[in-house]
Simulated scan of single mutants.
Amino acid sequence: MLNALQVVTIVIVGVMVGVEFSVPVFSNPILNALPGDNGLRARTHGARVGGAVMPFWYITSLVLVGIWAGAEWHHDGTGLVVTAGALLIVSVLLSVLVLVPINNRVKAWTTDSRPADWTEQLRRWDRWHYLRVAVIVAAFTFLAAALV
């Protein structure tokens, strides 16, 4: 049963990391290169979709890591799992305190109602998102290391 929990946790966290990694590396550069306001429209839609899905994904990942840590509390590798959990907590705090407020503004924008500093707000979100990606990649790495 513990092996199944570990596999499910690794897969869920790993796919989340892949999705979040793809945003700054692939999606946003493509969207930013679209002509006219198409990139802005796509990013506002992405803010709505991501804002609806990602909270559940982050919380599910954190809960699974917590269950994993509790299930093998006295085994080798538990410190790595706990460290991964702590990093996921940091990513959630970073999201709630910095990224979500920006995202909530972005998802309400239209081409007619965007603020004058909209590009700077998008760049700020991108910079913070890079940090979040680094944190969740580290968490994923600790989880993978806990298996060996």
Rank of each mutant, 00 (worst) to 15 (best):
L2V: 07
L2D: 01
N3A: 12
N3K: 10
N3F: 06
A4D: 02
L5F: 07
L5P: 04
Q6H: 12
V7N: 02
V8S: 13
V8Q: 07
T9S: 12
V11Y: 01
V11I: 15
I12T: 10
G14N: 06
V15N: 00
V15A: 11
V15E: 06
M16Q: 11
M16P: 00
G18L: 00
G18K: 11
V19N: 06
S22D: 02
P24W: 04
V25H: 06
F26N: 09
N28R: 07
N28G: 02
A33V: 06
L34F: 11
P35E: 15
L40C: 01
A42H: 07
A42L: 14
R43M: 14
R43V: 13
H45V: 15
H45K: 15
A47I: 03
V49W: 06
V49F: 10
G50M: 00
G51T: 01
G51Y: 00
V53L: 15
M54D: 04
M54Q: 01
F56K: 08
Y58A: 00
T60A: 15
T60K: 08
S61C: 15
L64F: 03
V65T: 15
G66E: 06
G70V: 05
E72T: 10
E72R: 15
H75E: 15
H75G: 10
D76W: 08
D76K: 04
D76G: 13
G77E: 05
T78G: 05
T78H: 07
T83N: 01
A84C: 13
G85Y: 06
A86N: 02
A86C: 10
A86H: 00
A86Y: 02
L87Q: 13
S91A: 15
S91V: 10
S91I: 07
V92M: 12
V92I: 15
L94T: 05
L94F: 04
S95E: 05
V96D: 03
V96L: 09
L97E: 04
L99I: 06
V100G: 03
I102M: 12
I102Q: 12
R105I: 06
R105C: 02
A108I: 05
W109G: 02
T110H: 02
D112C: 00
D112E: 15
S113D: 14
P115V: 09
A116Y: 03
D117M: 08
W118E: 01
W118H: 14
W118P: 04
T119F: 13
E120F: 03
L122S: 07
R123M: 03
W125I: 13
R127I: 09
R127K: 11
Y130F: 08
L131Y: 06
R132A: 12
V133T: 11
V135Q: 11
I136N: 09
A138V: 14
A139K: 12
F140D: 13
T141G: 09
T141Y: 00
F142T: 06
L143W: 01
A144C: 12
A144D: 07
A144P: 05
L147Y: 04
V148H: 12
